[in-house]
């Protein structure tokens, strides 16, 4: 055991949603941890459980969903059972949150400056004037030109990229130790996305906040994160340092995912594809959820694959990477 407590430690997390008289598990046995100043990307397609995982972590899983098992430790403290009130105090203070659409995160009828001031004063005893100064500083540090004027603008007067910076300013208002970014650049144009990602990278260097980033875009992860968690069907398929994952993906799903994305400068006639499409959460195959789309599927895949850990920090949940079982001892009636 390392003596440094990670900022976030998720262990065997499960979340489920009721469907009629049944329960559908949408996050199933997810474990990962984020150290101070580290950044972890959760990658997956729709229905992979990446967002529900993140929302469970911050205690914001939408009802009627609920965390069904496992623990979430924040700075060593188990927050899985924390009250809604306690979680609310933590969010916005210790944990900053940036969601996909900045327009839903901002109040459309309030000027942006007061919204940042409100975020600061909700968690700290500070005069309005001091908080306003701090808000302007935050805006300036996030590369917003003429922050004193922007302070007075309504959200609709700002561009998408500027709005997302305001949301980031609110998330950072109380120097959080963890920043959760859920598809933060998906609604942004590519040149604006590049600005935003550069900003996040710079923040990491400057203030050392731990980052959990949820995205469907593996390119975005490669830009910002050290570690990638690839999810599918509510489970972790593979987990590895970014460079290793891109250079040598282990799980057939990761291989398929990387092959499906066209790469600039490599004109292939046809793209590698994964056959079929993601089943709905109530129709996931038993055992490995990817087995019905996997070209390497075998009989064993109907059982849940164990997580195989490599010494270089990678881990993969796939029977292909399990050392062949010791040859069966000839017991009675083996044929």
């Amino acid at each position: 055991m390392a003596d440094v407590v990670p900022v976030l430690e998720v262990t065997d997390l499960s979340a489920e949603f009721p469907a009629g008289d049944r329960r559908i598990t949408v996050v199933d046995g997810v474990s990962f941890s984020v150290g101070a100043g580290a950044s972890v990307g959760l990658v997956g397609e729709s229905g992979s459980g990446k967002s529900v995982t993140a929302m469970s972590v911050i205690g914001m899983i939408p009802a009627p969903g609920r965390v069904a098992g496992g623990t979430v430790r924040f700075q060593g403290e188990d927050i899985t059972k924390a009250s809604a009130k306690a979680m609310r105090r933590r969010r916005g203070k210790d944990i900053g949150l940036v969601l996909q659409d900045p327009m839903t995160a901002l109040n459309p009828v309030q000027r942006v400056g007061p919204q940042i001031v409100e975020a600061i004063r909700a968690h700290q005893r500070m005069s309005k004037e001091k908080a306003a100064t701090r808000a302007v500083e935050l805006l300036r540090s996030l590369g917003i030109p003429s922050p004193e004027q922007r302070f007075q603008e309504y959200p609709h007067r700002l561009s998408g990229g500027m709005r997302q910076r305001v949301v980031l300013a609110i998330a950072l208002a109380n120097d959080p130790s963890l920043l959760v970014l859920d598809e933060p650049t998906t609604a942004l144009d590519v040149t604006v996305q590049a600005q935003f990602l550069d900003l996040v990278k710079e923040l990491r260097r400057r203030i050392g906040t731990a980052i959990v980033m949820i995205t469907h875009d593996i390119g975005v992860v490669a830009e910002v994160c050290d570690e990638v968690v690839v999810m599918y069907g509510g489970r972790i398929m593979e987990q590895a340092p970014v460079g290793l994952l891109l250079a040598e993906p282990l799980h057939p799903y990761t291989v398929g995912l990387l092959g499906s994305v066209p790469t600039i400068g490599e004109r292939a006639e046809t793209l590698a594809t994964i056959r079929g499409s993601v089943p709905s959460p109530d129709a996931m195959p038993p055992g490995c959820p990817f087995s019905n789309r996997c070209d390497h599927a075998m009989a064993r895949c109907e059982e849940r694959p164990p997580v195989v850990r490599h010494p270089d920090g990678r881990s993969v949940a796939c029977w292909l990477h399990v050392e062949p079982a010791p040859a069966r001892t000839p017991t009675t009636g083996a044929a």
Binding site: L197, V221, A222, L246, V261, T263, I264
Partner: peptide, 9 residues
């Protein structure tokens, strides 16, 4: 500006 998954990104 395109985020790249290329190894040499």
């Amino acid at each position: 500006a395109i985020p790249s998954a290329g190894v040499a990104a």
